[in-house]
Simulated assay, not measured.
Amino acid sequence: MNITVREMSDTDYNKAWELINFEDADAEFLLAFKNKEEDFYYVFDDDQLVGIIELIIDKDAFLYIFISPAFRNKGIGLIALKLCEEKLYKNSVKKITTTYRIDNLQSKVFANKFGYTRKFSSAYMKYTGNRFDIPEQLIRNYRGKDYDSAHEMYAKAFHEMRVSVGDFPDSIIERPSENMRKYWAETANERFLYIHDDIIVGYAHIDEDEIGSVSVRTEHQGQGIGRNFVKYICNKILDKGNDEVSLYCVVGNKARRLYDSLGFQEVYIAEYATKSVIYK
């Protein structure tokens, strides 16, 4: 057995869809891979493609190792983990986050064995019904000049959600940045704002068939705005020709009741775990 981790090439990318069984892969990982994001590597045993890795190198790094089912229980995942961690240590990372589906007990045990401790969990959910009938709403696309007020509302709402869940003791309100302002502008067609009394009270972001985020200003929650906003976003996704709408909902988030009531079904729970890196 000769396990190597290599950077992605177009040839390997096309080969991966033919050779890798993605049946129990995490949906977020699959979406990033489908979009050919830059942070992917391939796991080879000699010249045999056996797995894919998402590796984001930063002070707070991210690592997701997916070994095709036919090649599991052979020690390949362990070797790939060691190779990836060595690469991260050389870049002086301080923390590594990983994720796994809790319906795959083997993955959870593997992560825990090598020092990764649960941080929080998130339910991956899907809606496969018809378009919603909703009254006309004052919802429009995001524009660059909206950034300051939209980001402020979004950041505060998600901080309050994280605090309410209880799994994020170190949560802080995300600060605006020029890089984020630029990114939002570049993806403005994926972002929507809910306007009430001439102010932004809701923000949503979609990525293909996935609702990336939905937030409603705290003082406007409980007024049906979130329900109508989610219905509107679902219709937008379905109108693009998608057969379903997907999303992740942090376990403990009170918005789960809304998604359940609209017909979303839980597919699996993804657990996120972290490992702090201490250098001697």
Rank of each mutant, 00 (worst) to 15 (best):
Y41E: 09
T128G: 01
G129S: 08
R131Q: 13
S171P: 00
V93Q: 01
F22T: 04
Y154K: 12
I278S: 12
S213A: 14
G212Q: 07
E271V: 10
G252H: 11
G115R: 08
R175A: 13
L105H: 11
E208V: 02
E152C: 04
A270Y: 01
I200D: 05
Y203P: 00
Y279F: 11
I225E: 07
Y154A: 04
K82R: 14
A270K: 13
V267K: 12
N130C: 08
F192L: 03
I211S: 01
S122Y: 02
R6L: 12
F264D: 01
Y232R: 09
S171L: 01
E219G: 00
E190K: 13
S261A: 14
K236M: 09
T97S: 12
R175S: 14
S107V: 05
F22A: 06
N189C: 10
T274L: 10
I172W: 02
Y42Q: 03
Q137G: 07
M153W: 05
D170C: 01
K113Y: 11
F229Q: 05
A16L: 08
L193T: 04
V267P: 00
D167L: 02
F158A: 03
Y259I: 03
T97P: 00
A185L: 09
L193N: 03
A111K: 01
N179V: 07
H220S: 06
T98I: 07
S149D: 14
T4I: 13
Y232D: 06
V165Y: 09
D243N: 15
D239F: 11
N253P: 08
E208R: 11
F110V: 02
L63P: 10
D45M: 09
L81W: 05
G241Y: 12
E38P: 00
L247E: 04
R175C: 03
K240A: 14
H159D: 07
L262S: 11
G166R: 09
Y183E: 15
E208W: 07
V43Q: 02
S213K: 04
Y13C: 04
Y127E: 01
L193K: 06
M8C: 07
S177Q: 05
I52W: 03
S261K: 14
D146H: 10
F44G: 06
K36Q: 15
T128M: 09
N253M: 02
R140P: 05
E37D: 12
Y100D: 02
E178K: 15
E136S: 09
K87N: 10
Y279M: 00
K95N: 12
K36H: 09
R162D: 09
